[in-house]
Write a protein that binds this DNA or RNA. Structure first.
Lengths: 136, 136
DNA sequence: GCTTATCATCTACATGCGCTTACGATTCCG
DNA sequence: CGGAATCGTAAGCGCATGTAGATGATAAGC
């Protein structure tokens, strides 16, 4: 297929996205976390505790939709939620050791599955780097 | 960032997907077509006329959701819909010259915007090829 | 000190979509 | 020939999500 005959990037990216979701879903279920929960744990993995509003913006989530996800993670001891002493309107979120462990376990399995998928192509590192640049 | 510190493929692909949709939306609006309409026109661009059920499967759409999209495209003279003489249960869909023209005009603009986006990376052809292989 | 704004939370509405069921017309199969 | 299946279409249910508005607590600004 000539270059001008390839599919739209959008079409290819959407198909790949669906495939990745299908790949991740069993891993997430095995660990008992939803996709949103995993996204939250991953976002909280690095850096210091952060506010709910800041987290919602970072992961492109509606803040009102985040409330029950955070409630559940907190209840399961995976995150902690504390008022910011500097501004008691704000709740600061951080991972507990258990939350960090779970996030790392899930991510390790996702990585392994990604490696299998990526093994279909050559120059995997270049592809991933380019994907990172385009999605930054 | 080391390899084991990169974001999940899923996260990067979802972000790229949102970016591509945001890029395409104004182009589609300018031409007065919805995303689904454009997907249909593109799917019908090549090959002979095809059945509605076959089209729905090809573009990953619910066949009952496709009815109004096809109704509108037909009404606007962009596709034609005719009973298959070999099996009158089936309606065969094809592009009209006008539909083909519109699809090509939209796709040309999308391609141009994609080129701008891709210009951020090196080895663009390799990236697109790899993306094609992973999403096939 | 009072007004405005922000944070988190709750509730509700609207939209899109996956899925299911049902129907009439038509075809297939035993 | 009759029953089962398919196609396209219509209608509806349920879920997910974006969005808006309201609330109490708290903070900022004049």
């Amino acid at each position: 297929m000539a270059d001008n005959e390839r599919a739209d990037l959008g079409a290819m990216v959407m198909r790949l996205g669906r495939r990745l979701v299908a790949m991740e879903q069993p891993i997430l279920e095995r660990h008992g976390v939803t996709m949103w929960a995993y996204v939250v744990l991953t976002a909280l993995r690095d850096g210091p505790a952060r506010a709910q509003a800041s987290l919602a913006a970072a992961i492109n989530a509606d803040k009102t939709r985040l409330i029950p996800v955070l409630d559940d993670l907190q209840k399961r001891g995976l995150i902690e939620r504390e008022p910011d002493p500097a501004d008691r309107r704000v709740r600061l979120l951080g991972l507990t050791p258990e939350g960090r462990r779970l996030q790392q376990a899930v991510q390790a399995e996702i990585r392994a599955a990604e490696e299998v998928m990526l093994s279909k192509i050559k120059d995997q590192a270049a592809f991933v780097r380019a994907l990172g640049e385009l999605s930054a």
